[in-house]
Amino acid sequence: MALSSELVLDASNISVQFGGLLAVNDVSFNIPKKSVVSLIGPNGAGKTTFFNVLTGLYKPSEGKVMFGDREITDLPPHKIASIGLARTFQNIRLFGLMTAEENLLVAMHSHLKSGITSTILRTPRQRKEEKEALDSAREILDFVGIGKWASEYARNLSYGDQRRLEVARALALKPEILLLDEPTAGMNPQESSVFVDFVHRVRDARDVAILLIEHDMSVVMSVSERITVLDRGEKIAEGSPEEIRSNQRVIEAYLGKAASEGRGK
């Protein structure tokens, strides 16, 4: 077990109740600094619910989430985002009618300081701040490889480039943790394998820890240093890809579901 000082995020004993449904039951989960960890599980396992607790969209009925030394359980989503927890969306949610670089500038909102008056007057400080933000946005776009589309509207980008732009937008928040919600959804195997390299490159160059929610097992197995498996709201296993691959409960959870689906058809 890693020392707590090395953890960038530590969620302990999280439970989420929706009416009579216990969507997440007493799950503890942490993210070590600069690691790549994954959260997997069959459909309905509570992955996204848990994810939404981390980003502040849901408040857990029990448990608490620590970000470094700071408790973030009750912080609103925009606060959590601005102190360093950035996410992407399973079904891309870019600001389609804004250019790629504007998308990034929106994410920098909380780091910029200009108020109404200084924006109207275009004070030297405001202009300097805007220029620096724009430079930084272009740098991030170049980093993820879509620099040439900087002034293209987000909705005009290809699917793969939109995925990249989502990551770029999250990076613009200067996060310590990057949460990727099914980032390879809709990608073909080649694109997925390029993505695995991309994740490691992001982690190394940007000093972030990465949490993936992912369905594609080949991606999960090749990208993660640690995998946590949820089933019906409970944590049933946690360990290295090798450990998870041979874990009996994990196999049951997945094969059981596959078998019942087979009968259904």
Partner: peptide
Amino acid sequence: LAIREDELAASMMGVPL
């Protein structure tokens, strides 16, 4: 503009709604 497009995404990007 971001809020006009997608409130949830905007708040997730640190924009206080």
